[in-house]
């Protein structure tokens, strides 16, 4: 697991138990650990930092509510549950904005790309490569994109992804493999559009 996404699973059950009793410090530790991961996943999908933060806040508001009322019963699978809540929230956002065409997420994505520089695009060491990856990810099917984003933005292991999606681990592994192949093909076609056209 990437170092910044390591789940420190040893003390997570203790933190969750403490947080459920209203322990501020434990809840704060959980937020420090998971808020950036949820944000990165939402950010990859909506491309707008403000909207991604709003989604992140609402995800944790729901998680806090469920935890404190005892509605969280997936003991030992907190990550899967958290990211399932996050995925559902992102999808809800897409659906609600698609009902209002002037505010569709796609429009926001285009606006974000065209009207101002992407603050994250230039943040890495390889902004051009990152931007190419983002554009390729956007062209994946929803199922393939979800696996890629849970894996590489959310920092989840394949078992946690399988649990979050309620699918066998083998299916998730196969889908990840297939998504990587598609991404490779998409990136090549973006880099050499004329060559791809000629080959077609």
């Amino acid at each position: 697991m990437p170092a910044d996404a390591a789940d420190h699973g040893d003390d997570l059950p203790r933190l969750l138990a403490l947080a459920a009793t209203g322990d501020d410090r434990a809840w704060r530790s959980i937020l420090d650990r998971y808020a950036p991961r949820v944000f990165a996943m939402a950010r990859s999908r909506v491309r707008q930092p403000e909207l991604a933060e709003e989604i992140t806040q609402s995800v944790f508001a729901k998680v806090a509510e469920k935890m404190m009322t005892g509605a969280y019963t997936d003991q030992g699978r907190f990550e899967s549950w958290l990211f399932r809540v996050a995925m559902n929230r992102v999808r809800d956002e897409f659906r609600s904005r698609q009902r209002r065409p002037s505010e569709s997420v796609e429009n926001h994505v285009l606006d974000a790309r065209e009207s101002r520089p992407d603050p994250i695009a230039g943040a890495g060491e390889r902004p051009a490569e990152h931007e190419a990856l983002r554009r390729a990810i956007e062209q994946l099917s929803d199922a393939d994109r979800t696996v890629i984003e849970l894996r590489h933005h959310g920092g989840l292991g394949f078992k946690e992804i399988a649990s979050a999606l309620d699918e066998p681990t083998g299916t998730v592994l196969a889908r990840h493999h297939r998504a990587l192949k598609k991404l490779k093909s998409l990136i090549e076609s973006m880099a050499h559009p004329s060559a791809q056209e000629q080959s077609i």
Partner: peptide, 11 residues
């Protein structure tokens, strides 16, 4: 992709 995800989390 791992690098992209790490960059997004850091950002």
């Amino acid at each position: 992709l791992d690098d992209l995800g790490r960059s997004d989390r850091a950002a």
